[in-house]
Deep mutational scan, measured.
Amino acid sequence: TTVHVNGVTYHFPNPEEAKKFVDRVVKEAGLTVEVKGNQWDVE
């Protein structure tokens, strides 16, 4: 699973890890998340 955060790419072994990361980032920074298949874009 690939997560893009403001142009930076993070790779995770599974969607659960990616979701935990995204949830944390979104809570801390108040960002928006767009999910496209296995790819997350966070802005």
Rank of each mutant, 00 (worst) to 15 (best):
V26T: 12
H4G: 04
W40R: 01
T32G: 10
K20M: 07
N6E: 05
F21H: 01
A29R: 00
Y10E: 01
T9G: 04
E28M: 04
G37D: 15
Q39P: 11
K20I: 09
K36C: 15
N6R: 03
V26D: 06
W40P: 08
E17W: 02
E16Q: 07
V8A: 07
G37N: 11
K27I: 11
K20R: 08
G37F: 14
V8L: 08
Y10S: 01
V33H: 08
V22Y: 12
N14F: 03
V26H: 09
R24P: 02
K36R: 04
V22C: 11
F12Y: 01
V33S: 13
K27P: 04
T32F: 03
A18I: 01
E34W: 02
A18G: 01
L31R: 02
V33G: 11
E34I: 15
K27D: 07
R24Y: 14
T9C: 10
V25P: 02
G37Y: 15
V26C: 10
T9V: 12
T32N: 12
H11A: 04
V35C: 09
G37R: 02
A29F: 15
K19T: 05
P15Q: 11
W40H: 10
H4T: 14
V5C: 03
V8R: 07
F21N: 00
V3D: 00
D41A: 10
F12D: 01
H11E: 06
E17N: 02
Q39S: 11
V3E: 00
K36L: 15
K36A: 15
N6G: 09
Q39C: 15
F21A: 01
V22L: 10
A29E: 13
D23C: 11
K19F: 06
L31T: 11
H4L: 14
T32Y: 03
D41E: 14
H4N: 13
E34T: 14
A18C: 05
E34M: 04
N6I: 02
G7W: 01
K20V: 07
L31W: 15
V3A: 03
W40T: 08
A18V: 02
T1Y: 13
N38V: 04
G37E: 14
E43Y: 13
K36M: 15
N14I: 02
Q39V: 13
T9E: 11
T1N: 06
L31Y: 12
K19Q: 13
V33N: 11
N38G: 10
K36Y: 12
H11M: 06
G7H: 03
H11R: 04
N14G: 06
R24E: 13
V33K: 02
V5D: 00
K27Y: 09
P15T: 11
K27E: 08
R24C: 15
L31K: 05
R24H: 11
Q39F: 07
D41H: 15
H11G: 02
F12V: 00
V22S: 03
W40L: 07
N6K: 04
V8Y: 09
E43C: 11
V5A: 04
G7L: 01
K36Q: 15
D23H: 03
V25I: 14
G7Y: 01
V33F: 09
G37C: 04
L31E: 10
A18E: 02
V26N: 09
H4M: 14
P15D: 12
E43T: 14
K36T: 15
D41N: 12
A29H: 14
K27S: 10
P15A: 13
V26E: 08
T2L: 08
Y10A: 02
V8W: 06
H4E: 09
K27N: 10
D41C: 15
L31G: 14
T32K: 06
V3C: 03
G37P: 15
T32V: 14
E17F: 01
F12R: 00
N38D: 15
N38K: 03
E43G: 11
D23N: 04
A29V: 10
R24W: 15
G37V: 14
T2C: 11
W40K: 05
R24Q: 13
V42L: 12
A29P: 09
E34D: 12
V25R: 01
V25S: 03
G37M: 04
P13Y: 06
Q39T: 09
D41L: 15
V35P: 01
T2S: 10
D23Q: 04
D41Q: 13
E17G: 01
V42F: 08
G7Q: 02
G7D: 03
N6V: 02
K20Q: 12
K20S: 08
T32H: 12
A18K: 01
T1S: 07
A29D: 11
D23F: 03
N14T: 12
P13V: 08
K27T: 10
V42I: 11
V3T: 01
G7I: 03
K20W: 05
V42C: 07
G30C: 09
V8D: 05
F12G: 00
E16R: 03
G37H: 12
V25L: 15
K36V: 15
G7C: 09
N38F: 05
V22P: 01
F12I: 00
H11D: 04
K36D: 15
V26I: 13
E17V: 04
G7M: 02
V35S: 04
K19P: 00
N14W: 01
V22E: 04
R24V: 10
V3M: 03
V33T: 12
N38R: 01
L31V: 14
V3Y: 02
K19S: 08
N14A: 03
P13N: 12
R24S: 13
Y10D: 01
E43W: 09
Q39E: 15
N14Q: 02
T1C: 06
A29K: 03
V33I: 07
E28H: 05
H4A: 08
K20F: 04
Q39D: 14
F21R: 00
E43R: 08
P15H: 12
T9R: 07
F12N: 00
T9K: 11
V42P: 09
V42T: 10
K36E: 15
T2F: 12
N6M: 09
R24M: 13
G30Q: 07
V8G: 03
E28T: 05
F12K: 00
R24N: 11
E34K: 03
T1A: 10
T2D: 06
V42N: 10
Q39A: 12
E34G: 08
V22I: 12
V33P: 07
